[in-house]
Structure formats: C-alpha cells, structure tokens
Simulated assay, not measured.
Amino acid sequence: MPLQKLRNFLDEQGVRYVLIVHSPAYTAQEIAASAHIPGKKLAKTVMAKVDGKMSMFVLPATYQLDLSKCKAEMNAKEVELASEEEFKYLFPECEIGAMPPFGNLYGLPVYACKELAENDEIAFNAGNHRELIKLPFADFQRLVNPMIIDITKEM
C-alpha cells in the first residue's frame, strides 16, 4: 500500500495522524533514533508463518518476537520467521521490510503484542524507509482489530 493509499484509507476512516519524514533508516532501532521516537512506541512489523500460514506480528522496536511464546499462545504446531523472499510479493507497492502493520488490508491475520497495546500512540513505517505515520493506538486497534497476545521478549 503506497503512502497515498494508506493516507486515503486513514482519512476515510476519520483518523487523525502525523506524517513523519526522516533520513533513510532500515532497522527499527535506527528508525526510532532518526525520527526521535521512543523504541517502545515504534511498531515494527515481523512476518512469520504459523502452521504454514503467513501472519503479521506487530511489536515495539525494543522487543523481539518470541517464537516459543507464539507457539504456546496460539496453540500452533510450528511458528517460524518468514524470509523476505517468502513475503515480498504480498506487498508489491512497499519497499521490502517497510510495510505498514495493516495486514488486514492484505488478507493477513495480525497479532499485536500486549506491550504495544500499552501505548497511547504508535508510529510505523508507511511503506518506505523514509516516512512514518503516528496515530493513536486505539485507532490502529479499531481499524486492524489485531489479536493482542503475549508474544515478545525484550532485546
């Protein structure tokens, strides 16, 4: 979803958001530093396969996805990180690794960690490595309806 399509969607839904432009950055920690956003409020998107089905996980930049916790919380037989090759085709209009956490718009289940849900607002990649969108977590939750579960460990 290119930035304009995402912005149009948010505008149609009546969401107030801020667009943040920053110097190119590729890791969640670099992005948080470049955009002057606390790592706990920067939502990173991690793609994983749950029993072979591609799924989107959203967590703070300062956390890692804990595959063992995912497996237990989701009653899954297998949870494994997906490679970029396995998911890049799902987001053809986004730069690899910069997809926004709106998996529901791509037909993907979305899981958010409980730590992210503790924030009043979050910021996330807007489809590229130079722009973020910041909005209230409550609006993200309303639009995406992620399952909120305990799936992380601190880095």
Rank of each mutant, 00 (worst) to 15 (best):
F91T: 04
K40D: 13
I37G: 11
G107K: 11
A48Q: 06
V110C: 08
S55A: 13
V15Q: 06
T45I: 12
P146H: 04
E80T: 00
Y106V: 05
P101M: 10
T45Q: 09
N104E: 09
G103M: 03
N104D: 14
H22Q: 11
S68M: 08
A33Q: 15
N125W: 08
Q4P: 07
H36K: 15
L105E: 11
L42S: 07
D120C: 00
C70Y: 04
C94A: 15
A82Y: 03
N104C: 07
V21K: 14
E115K: 04
L3R: 15
M99Y: 09
H129L: 04
R142G: 05
S23M: 09
P92E: 10
N125E: 14
E118T: 04
E12K: 11
V110P: 02
D66I: 00
A61N: 07
E95L: 06
N125M: 08
Q141G: 01
H22R: 07
L143M: 06
P146E: 06
E154D: 05
S83G: 02
E73N: 10
P100G: 10
V58T: 13
V58K: 08
Y63H: 13
N75E: 06
F140T: 01
V144W: 09
M54N: 03
I37P: 14
P100M: 10
C70D: 02
E84R: 00
K69P: 05
G127D: 10
K153L: 05
G14N: 06
T152E: 09
K71S: 06
F9I: 06
R130K: 14
M74P: 00
Q64N: 10
E78M: 02
E78L: 02
Q13C: 09
H129I: 06
D120I: 01
V46W: 00
A98H: 03
F87L: 05
L42I: 14
H129Q: 05
K5C: 07
N145H: 10
K5H: 13
G52H: 04
G14A: 06
N75V: 01
E154L: 07
T62Y: 11
A32P: 12
